[in-house]
Nucleic acid binder design. Structure first.
Lengths: 215, 215
DNA sequence: TAGATTGTTAATCGATTAACAATC
DNA sequence: TAGATTGTTAATCGATTAACAATC
């Protein structure tokens, strides 16, 4: 089964779009509509669905409720997912208060920080000392964490998480982390995301100038 | 010239790695070392360099200072880039205080928010009312912006930015935005990034269970 | 020279898109 | 039935990797 990161991301997008359509009162949907909704092609939609065994009706399109149920099952949305966040700086806080995680069944159950002045056990999402991570994660069977600490601390935090039984991490530290072979590591580098935008804008600009000087 | 988003992102990674190596006292580097540093293959490094006209010495590797100079020029690092951020929630604040933008020549010169209670003209990075965006961006010739507002406001903000002459956006709102053909739009969907981690961790788990029940 | 590394071309791989028979 | 849409196979496209001649 083709389960690249990209195809899984698309399944999540389809699911989101389908909930929107359902909310608007639609009952059925064509591959064409879904493609528009997420910015893909109809071929891609049908291909994805074919790979994951999502079937529709020739001529009749797809029944939205059925699709949603199948996707919820495929994507593990039927049981809530408990995750933790390490680092309570701005990115950590952004993740802790991310609207929309609730809708997709993801719950941040605690955050951790080396700075014990930030400890707050009474908060809705408690902030705990980093030293308590291992015990907490083991006890609560946490499988997924977020690393939102400075890059100098990231590798150490990752190792702490691994030893606590965590199996996958979304990492915001702009540094290459070493992890075991089957560990799930997804890196988001905000700096590079922004730099690529700047690059392509400048490239466009250069192109425009070149065009002008040519004529 | 092959300038996919991915290859440009790699150039930025090479640059970062080269600065680290230079700082450590290295003078030359082989494609092999650089590949290790950013998690690619030596072939990929040489291919990228060949495409962008970065040349080394057969047998002698690449001179770090030369590479850095060429990359700085290619990536437009020689003149500072001024950008703005719209939305001063957690993600907006994270971008405003992102350590590392300075190093790469990116400067957030202002943030904007609909909530005028947040206005703060005296701050190091001033927070201004959204209504002032257009004039500010035009006057300062801002070309790149960040959208960190709720998804219900994102399209409207994008249009405001376009009319102010902005040519590229890094968008954090989890929604598909419509923009002109040559506009540079880069979407980061934190929800989906996290959901894909959760998915693959669960998939690993299922696999492990299947293996066990097989034996 | 012998050994090592580049630069480039060719091979592979994977993902997207197109095409079209099946069929409702 | 005629028209439209699926499901799947084939074609295309693009990116990565392998191979190797050139050469320091």
């Amino acid at each position: 089964m083709k389960t690249s990161k990209q195809s899984i991301a698309r399944l999540h997008s389809y699911r989101e779009a389908l909930y929107r359509l359902k909310y608007l009162g639609f009952v059925k949907v064509f591959s064409d509509n879904l493609a528009d909704a997420i910015g893909a092609t109809a071929s891609q939609v049908r291909k994805d669905f074919s790979i994951f065994g999502l079937i529709g009706n020739k001529k009749g399109g797809y029944v939205i409720d059925e699709l949603i149920n199948k996707l919820d099952e495929l994507l593990g949305k039927n049981q809530p997912q408990h995750i933790i966040v390490v680092g309570s700086g701005n990115i950590g806080k952004a993740l802790m208060s991310y609207k929309g995680f609730g809708k997709v069944g993801i719950h941040v159950v605690a955050a951790f920080d080396t700075d014990e002045a930030k400890t707050n056990r009474a908060a809705e999402i408690p902030i705990l000392p980093l030293g308590e991570l291992k015990e907490f994660a083991k006890q609560r069977h946490i499988k997924v964490g977020v690393i939102a600490v400075p890059d100098t601390a990231a590798q150490q935090v990752l190792e702490m998480m691994i030893s606590a039984g965590i199996k996958g991490v979304l990492n915001f530290a702009p540094i290459r982390l070493n992890c075991p072979e089957h560990f799930v590591l997804n890196n988001v580098n905000l700096g590079i995301e922004l730099e690529t935008v700047v690059y392509f804008v400048n490239a466009l600009n250069r192109q425009a100038h070149d065009e002008k000087s040519k004529s």
